[in-house]
């Protein structure tokens, strides 16, 4: 019973903090992108425009809620909340510190990957239910992309699992805390696996350069083309939460989680690493152009999958003979 209360209370805290951080990460991204483009970004709404995301949400709350006449209304309405729930659900198993965790599951890595993989379902549902050709194309692309990139994502996540000998994320972090961060040693396994994990994660979260399901210049707004007001906001939020949580997972699996190296470990390290990774993803986003869908597939199946298989095999050999 106490475990339930613990999970509930920490879960509530994590979700609240996550939503707040997501809202302000929107502001942060807009400012960062603006500075990268020699603009100013939001300045007039609150000090340095920091209240901009709040104004956006307040505005979206007041917008008319349109369900297209020929859309499948049930699925159309169901998709956005499911997307958010899936994205937040992943956060349940991510330990931010030895204590700040909703549920440090024994199969934490499996859970995270499984729930993360489900996020494509609402996206495809939205594309299908909108009864819009552009949205349908976006949904098709999303499915193809997510199913493909699931493979390197899982294989890359297997590397720390093999090295640490546990699927519990807390144990993986503890192992790194006791030995080395996986990107530091064995770096020839850790760094490639980390890079593959981040790339696959970008593809899962539909971020540039893999944002072809949304692809404004081709598909107008992709799967979200027909969504208005809060439903659109939920999709938008799901994308950011997904990226944020995935950054947290990557920090835990490869960057030592709450371990601070020579300094005292603590929650702040995990938060810092997550935000640092998150900002790095923004940087990629506002620098690169977009792949075409067949190039995306080729990158996945021709390069990422074979190399991640090789990494897993090497990790096994390493554990048996060295570690």
């Amino acid at each position: 019973m106490s475990g339930f209360v613990h999970g509930l209370s920490y879960g509530a805290v994590i979700v609240t903090v996550l939503m707040t951080v997501t809202a302000f990460s929107l502001w942060f991204e807009r400012k960062l992108a603006a500075r990268m483009q020699s603009r100013l970004g939001p300045t007039l709404v609150g000090p340095a425009g920091i209240l901009q995301p709040i104004a956006d949400v307040l505005k979206l709350l007041q917008k008319e809620d349109i369900v297209p006449l020929k859309a499948d209304a049930v699925l159309f309405n169901l998709a956005p909340p499911v997307a958010v729930v899936c994205a937040i659900g992943v956060a349940a198993a991510v330990p931010f510190s030895p204590t700040v965790v909703a549920a440090d599951l024994d199969v934490g890595v499996l859970y995270v990957l499984a729930i993360g993989a489900v996020t494509v379902l609402p996206v495809f549902t939205a594309g299908w239910a909108s009864n819009n050709k552009l949205a349908l194309l976006g949904g098709m692309r999303a499915v193809a992309q997510s199913v493909s990139y699931e493979v390197p994502l899982v294989l890359a996540a297997l590397v720390p699992v093999i090295l640490a000998g546990s699927m519990r994320i807390g144990a993986i972090v503890q192992f790194q805390s006791d030995h080395h961060w996986f990107v530091a040693w064995p770096f020839f396994l850790g760094i490639p696996a980390f890079v593959i994990f981040v790339l696959a994660m970008l593809a899962e979260a539909n971020r540039i350069p893999f944002d072809i399901p949304e692809a404004e210049s081709e598909l107008v707004a992709g799967v979200t083309t027909e969504y208005t007001g809060m439903k659109f906001a939920l999709f938008y939020m799901a994308e950011y939460v997904h990226t944020l949580v995935a950054s947290a997972v990557a920090s835990a699996l490869f960057l030592g989680g709450w371990d601070g190296g020579p300094f005292r470990p603590g929650l702040h390290w995990m938060v810092l690493k997550t935000l640092f990774l998150f900002a790095g993803l923004y940087w990629i986003r506002w620098t690169l152009l977009r792949f075409r869908s067949d190039q995306l597939m080729r990158l996945c199946w021709r390069y990422l999958v074979p190399s991640s298989i090789a990494l897993v095999a090497t990790a096994g050999v390493w554990v048996v003979f060295v570690g």
């Binding site: 970004g41 939001p42 300045t43 007039l44 709404v45 956006d56 404004e216 107008v220 979200t224």
Partner: peptide, 11 residues
Amino acid sequence: IDRMGTIVRAS
């Protein structure tokens, strides 16, 4: 125009 929170949406 992003200074006043105006962004461009294609849809």
